[in-house]
Amino acid sequence: MTTASAGAHEAHEHTHYTTTGLDNKKIAIWAFIGSECMLFGSLISTYLVYKGKSVVGPFPHDAWTSPAGQLFKPILNIPVTSASTFVLLMSSLFMVLALAAVENKGKPGYEGWQGSSKVWLAATALAGAVFLGFQAYEFTSFVHEGLTIRTNLFGTSFFTLTGFHGTHVAVGVLWLLSLLFIDIKRGLGPRDTINVDICALYWHFVDVVWIAIFTLVYLIK
């Protein structure tokens, strides 16, 4: 029974009556996502309010000279972040394919590796991990260039905003790996759709937050 399903067993949608006919978990995850809008809204607002208010460098979009006279380039690395953005976008594609594979398991058109939820769950988790790798690379290179969370307001608000997003990605990767583990152990099928669906909704939400961050933080000066 332990592995009978992933996620909370709080709702037995097939045995219990619900008013809307929808699953409790799905309503809860959407309410949660609504709540997350306010969390990231606050974080993004703070970043934007503090944009250009740093007293000392490094700056995101402008070159600056350190007190020692050394010239620094703008610190944001657009090519690398573009790559990681692309990876995260692709992870969303993998995620919908994973959900479709779980929902339609055994149906025609879902044979082979292309219809395997294991493949797509693994791919999604891997893409998430690669994104986190890019972020780790970005953070360490910033630290080498003299930007830490304590250096200036940009560092403070940048690391906090992207760090919160990264933490969400990390939680999502753990969630995906848990689903993958269950899938390998006993196989996920149509009756598990809801449990994969709520994970997918969370994952895509984390992706759309990044869509906003990429534009607001990286591309717009």
């Binding site: 309503i27 609504g34 306010m38 990231f40 809204g41 607002s45």
Partner: peptide, 19 residues
């Protein structure tokens, strides 16, 4: 279902206005 749209769009609007 429309309920999900309401649960998402409502908070999104409030978050946007606050921003």
């Amino acid at each position: 279902h429309a309920i999900f749209r309401k649960l998402f769009v409502g908070p999104l609007i409030i978050a946007g206005c606050t921003l």
